[in-house]
Measured scan of single mutants.
Amino acid sequence: NSLAEAKVLANRELDKYGVSDYYKNLINNAKTVEGVKALIDEILA
Rank of each mutant, 00 (worst) to 15 (best):
K24A: 05
N11T: 13
A10E: 01
S2E: 14
V33R: 03
K24D: 02
R12Q: 15
L44T: 05
L3S: 01
L9T: 15
L39A: 04
I43G: 03
A38K: 13
K7L: 06
R12F: 13
L14E: 00
N25F: 09
G35F: 11
N1Q: 14
S20A: 11
L44A: 05
V36F: 03
K7C: 04
E42G: 10
V36T: 01
D15E: 13
N11V: 14
A38V: 09
L3R: 00
K16Y: 07
R12S: 14
E5D: 12
D15Y: 04
D21W: 05
I43K: 01
L44S: 04
A45T: 11
V33M: 08
A4G: 05
A6R: 03
I40C: 05
Y22V: 06
N25L: 07
A10T: 00
T32S: 11
K37D: 03
E13I: 15
T32N: 05
L44N: 04
R12T: 12
L26R: 05
V19Y: 15
T32L: 01
L9V: 15
L26D: 03
N1D: 13
K24P: 02
V19G: 11
Y17P: 01
S2R: 13
L26C: 08
A30E: 09
N29C: 11
N29D: 12
E5R: 10
E34F: 04
Y22W: 11
E42T: 08
A30T: 07
E5S: 09
Y23Q: 04
K7Y: 01
G35S: 12
A6F: 07
I40D: 00
S20Q: 07
N11Y: 13
L14F: 03
A38Q: 12
E42D: 08
V33K: 04
A45I: 10
G35Y: 11
A10P: 01
K24I: 07
L39T: 03
E13G: 02
G18H: 12
E13T: 12
A38L: 11
L9A: 15
L39I: 13
I40M: 15
D41Y: 10
K24M: 05
L3Y: 00
D21Y: 04
K31D: 12
S20F: 05
Y23S: 02
V33S: 03
K7R: 03
L14S: 05
Y17D: 02
A6G: 02
I43W: 09
K24S: 06
